[in-house]
């Protein structure tokens, strides 16, 4: 997992709960880096799960909620980091529909070793998209957060309904409705 995700996550935790919480969840987790992350590094994604799991316990907030919130935040960070790649995109559905064939293609150019989730996108009607999320990371909620961040970014309103297609959450159906 890219280091920027870790640094952004820890910044977000610090911003909302103070560095004490950051220290606590780092100390509680067993991390290869002892919590020293740099945005340009690459780290095992299991560390992210540990950090989020410990934060959930510490603050008594479900992991799903945390992931959504984090996703929403990461979206705005990503938009700032890669403005050229999204210059031609003007609304949420357009972005969603370009993930597989455009965005992921560009990502692989920059990070050849990135392990990306797979999205199968079907436009059901003008205002509905069905998205099948497949990833062994089982982080569909992060994706929901990202989508919500996207709606916010384009000043649009929409909801996302989640249905697990596999119990472990490795395959999830997301029904995205634009209002």
């Amino acid at each position: 997992m890219k280091g920027v995700i870790f640094t952004e996550f820890l910044d977000l935790v610090e911003e909302n709960f103070g560095y004490e919480t950051v220290d606590t969840i780092i100390e509680k987790s067993s991390l290869s880096t002892n919590g020293a992350y740099t945005a340009i590094g690459t780290y095992p994604h299991s560390e992210m799960f540990q950090l989020i799991g410990n934060l959930s316990q510490e603050k008594n907030i479900p992991v799903e909620v945390l992931l959504r919130l984090f996703g929403k935040h990461v979206f705005s960070v990503l938009m700032k980091s890669f403005p050229t790649h999204t210059r031609h995109i003007s609304h949420t559905f357009q972005l969603l529909e370009s993930i597989e064939n455009h965005i992921h293609v560009e990502v692989r150019k920059i990070y050849p070793d990135a392990e990306l989730p797979h999205f199968q996108i079907t436009r059901l009607d003008d205002n509905t998209i069905e998205m099948i999320y497949t990833s062994k990371r089982k982080m569909a909620d992060l994706a929901i957060g990202l989508i919500e961040g996207c709606f916010d970014h384009f000043n649009e309103k929409g909801t996302v309904q989640k249905t697990n297609l596999k119990d472990d959450g490795s395959e999830v159906r997301l029904l995205i409705l634009k209002k």
Binding site: Y19, V22, D23, E27, G35, T38
Partner: peptide, 21 residues
């Protein structure tokens, strides 16, 4: 203690970043 650890983490992160750079 927390501050010490934070400082230590940031130093580590900086070193690591420097090495990568």
């Amino acid at each position: 203690e927390i501050l010490k650890r934070r400082f230590e983490r940031e130093r580590e992160a900086r070193k690591c970043a420097e090495a990568i750079l």
